[in-house]
Design a protein around this nucleic acid. Structure first.
Lengths: 225, 225
DNA sequence: CGGCGTGTTGAAGACTTTCAACGTATGTGG
DNA sequence: CCACATACGTTGAAAGTCTTCAACACGCCG
């Protein structure tokens, strides 16, 4: 099994990973394609092997809020639930592991190890969501953008060694919908940070020149003792 | 064991509830008292038996964001984690079940039933957080207040039969910090909704006169098939 | 009865959004 | 290989919403 497959990333090198892997179908989805939509029956469960996926909710009038950006090793939704609670779409081309839900659920229920991993995963997601709540509730436009860049940098660093060049595979619209801003405000804020020499805005990313750790701690760890 | 104890509310009438109950110490905390603070070592895990608890994060400059309001039957934090990820404070007087964390964790790990319940709980919390993300990111002041009232009404209805009078045990400041607004804006918005005959503002609550279901669906269910 | 914590209302100010125009990049077809 | 079309990004000016600062009202408890 490849080190870059979802099952390995989620479970590590274990029997559980092997078993998950056997159960999964590899699916490649082209950029910008929808993977599933909110309220659909969740007959499949998806794990992300490669690429970035936006998880979002739509309001009746078309407003969109991104609730999370998924990275490799993460489920696109909580697996035990029978209906998708948000929509998912590929940002660039992505590679997914698709599981038949009934089969996956039965397997998870029978494995304390997997249940524990799932609790840890959910805990991590909850932490991420709550930190983002703080940003949306209390942060100015500049704080939100800096928070996003810091968070993104930390999450990327967990996948590959740090580089001053931080790739941003998503569009301005995605950043805006994640931070509860408009694309214009995001653009203006990035420009202002560039003028202040905090970052350098380059195509498809930024170069971090003067970025200190965020004020909310790295919320990536879910130490499980 | 009382029907109103945390263990019963969390597990239902089962052996697991009995065992949890044995492990718990009953603690009563007076109104406004802090229960634990963010970043402290989480040697105890708390479940809520009675009352309302605010879970919040503080920014270095003192700004406060409430990430959730806990109701009876809910853990105040994810139990498997060694350090509190947010602070908790009693709104009115509350009754808690306090568990020694090491013991509780060991017990949970050994019980697939409890692990499953925990996954379901985490899933529900994640859904709540994500719906709130949408509100904070995309909602106007009026939408946020209506969303809060609807959500609160739904959560209360799950505990006791619906009444047109909706008690609001928390202060204006809590509502403001939950919705990412100021107390003045909350107050003005409630007054405006009163003038529009959508609600009637009364001491310690509101009377719902013309409130339709929220636009985001009841996010209380985490159907687990 | 008085005082403090809490809630409401008003007016000025700040920040983000909206609407609009312009710039830049990418990719396809001639 | 260039030209143009389209999608994405940036910038400006006006407008709107929420915040801030301030004053006042209400209610509870000593």
């Amino acid at each position: 099994m490849a080190r870059s497959s979802f099952s390995y990333l989620f479970c590590g090198e274990s029997n559980e990973a092997q078993e998950l892997h056997r159960m999964a179908a590899r699916v490649v989805v082209p950029a910008k394609q929808t993977i599933f939509s909110e309220d659909e029956r969740a007959d499949s469960v998806f794990g992300l092997s490669e690429g970035t996926v936006r998880l979002f909710k739509l309001l009746p009038d078309g407003r969109r809020q991104i609730v999370a950006l998924a990275l490799p090793g993460e489920f696109l939704e909580m697996p035990m639930i029978g209906r998708y609670r948000h929509s998912a779409a590929a940002i660039g081309e992505v590679e997914l592991a698709r599981f038949p839900r009934k089969q996956l659920v039965a397997h998870i229920r029978s494995s304390p190890k997997l249940l524990s991993l799932l609790v840890d995963f959910a805990t991590r997601q909850l932490n991420l969501a709550q930190v983002q709540l703080v940003m949306l509730g209390k942060g100015s436009a500049e704080e939100r953008v800096l928070f996003f860049l810091n968070t993104w940098r930390d999450r990327m660093a967990a996948l590959e060694p740090f580089q001053p060049y931080l790739p941003l595979p998503m569009w301005r619209e995605d950043i805006a919908d994640l931070l509860g801003l408009t694309i214009e405000t995001v653009s203006r804020t990035l420009s202002r940070l560039d003028r202040k020499n905090v970052i350098r805005v380059v195509p498809k990313g930024v170069i971090l020149t003067g970025l200190e750790p965020p004020s909310l701690g790295s919320m990536a760890d879910s130490q499980t003792t």
